[in-house]
């Protein structure tokens, strides 16, 4: 239990670092570390497949994409953030922490839930048989993403042709 809470705290701390760090590359890296923590939490919650995806895709692929974007936009792209943003963050964060704690504690006694029976079958069966529609939608999302990237980068190709 304590290990789990430590991992969760690590996740939150690295996410906050990702937001507060000035250097974008460092921010992207701390986001990756946060993903790593999340992946380990998934493993410990008996969700190995989701953990693998979180670590390989989010901590790996998305970080690479971020780093690439940072590298491509590096030249004179210094953006001055308002100083108040960073200074005020701990204050708001603590206020929200207290509210969050109180709300969750009060909800704790009140929320009933239906008891769920134990699941049968394997991960593959659940994915392919009972969530087949999600796979179709996933194909749709991937197609949309690919077409979107094609559409957004098409000008460059034209320049090459001309």
């Amino acid at each position: 239990m304590i290990i789990q809470i430590l991992l969760l705290s690590g996740l939150v701390i690295f996410s906050i670092l990702a937001i507060l760090l000035k250097d974008l590359l460092k921010a992207a890296l701390s986001l990756a570390v946060a993903s790593l923590f999340l992946g380990i939490i998934f493993f410990r919650l008996d969700a190995p497949y989701a953990g693998v995806f979180e670590i390989s895709v989010v901590a790996g692929l998305i970080t690479v994409l971020f780093a690439l974007t940072v590298a491509l936009t590096r030249k004179d792209s210094e953006v001055k953030e308002a100083r108040l943003t960073r200074l005020a963050f701990p204050l708001f964060f603590v206020i929200f922490l207290i509210i969050d704690g109180l709300v969750m504690k009060s909800l704790l006694q009140q929320v009933p839930a239906l008891p769920a029976g134990p699941e049968t079958g394997s991960f593959g069966e659940v994915l392919w048989k009972s969530r087949t529609f999600d796979l179709v939608a996933q194909l749709g999302v991937i197609l949309a993403g690919v077409l979107a990237v094609l559409a957004l980068f098409r000008k460059k190709e034209e320049d090459k042709d001309e």
Partner: peptide, 25 residues
């Protein structure tokens, strides 16, 4: 106790996220 279902949802969500990240970047 429905971790298998939740895993499929989380993985699908990650796929959506990748697509979004690509578009946004």
């Amino acid at each position: 106790h429905s971790i298998l279902l939740a895993q499929t949802l989380a993985i699908t969500y990650i796929v959506v996220e990748v697509s979004l990240v690509a578009t946004a970047l």
